[in-house]
Design a protein around this nucleic acid. Sequence first.
DNA 1: CGCTAGATTAGACGGATGTCGAATCAAGAC
DNA 2: GTCTTGATTCGACATCCGTCTAATCTAGCG
Lengths: 106, 106
Amino acid sequence: MPLVREPVGSAAATELSAAFKALGDPVRLRLLSLIASRDGGEACVCELTDSFDLSAPTISHHLRVLREAGLVGSERRGTWVHYRAEPTLLRRLSELLAVPAAGSVA
Amino acid sequence: MPLVREPVGSAAATELSAAFKALGDPVRLRLLSLIASRDGGEACVCELTDSFDLSAPTISHHLRVLREAGLVGSERRGTWVHYRAEPTLLRRLSELLAVPAAGSVA
DNA sequence: CGCTAGATTAGACGGATGTCGAATCAAGAC
DNA sequence: GTCTTGATTCGACATCCGTCTAATCTAGCG
């Protein structure tokens, strides 16, 4: 499973690189962290916008990219929309990049 | 350190997202995996080119992106250039994406 | 030296990306 | 219904990105 164990196949690379691509923007990385680090792993969009010097449409665009990459999910509750992190994909990416300790056995 | 523990700062996000951006292409992800999964963690460029249906300059371009992101290093030995993975940055990214188990204590 | 093989650089091209303002949609208050 | 607030969608713009061919550089061989 880790990248260092065996070569990532073409299909898997396409799928996984899409997730990394979504993480490849400082605003999106901070957005994901803001969402994931909150108690309950959820955040309202209104709480996220204030952390950036960007327009609301731009934040909305970045959240959509994160959602389409499968890194977050969203749910509307009344007036506000809440985003939550998806731990499954995060763990998968984390394992992919993991580097076994120098002397670790197979 | 993990993304879910506390919000990633602006400066750290800029630095880390640059690495994820480099991983955000299927060719580069496979290249890194091909390099890292080889015995000794090294690979010659000539061995990498054959795995793709791309021109040599394109492979060279992707290797440069990986190098400038700090994910690989390169060294010329005679006629051939060898690339090796950088485990330190890989581990840092892996830890960043790690999601503690549900019942884990702080 | 010239020649060949491996690798990078330079320049060009089409397509994707990040940002914005304006318009639109959704839900509630009055 | 109208108005207000939160959030998204639309359309535009400048910039960046992946790919190619052609040219260049590096190292060895004769």
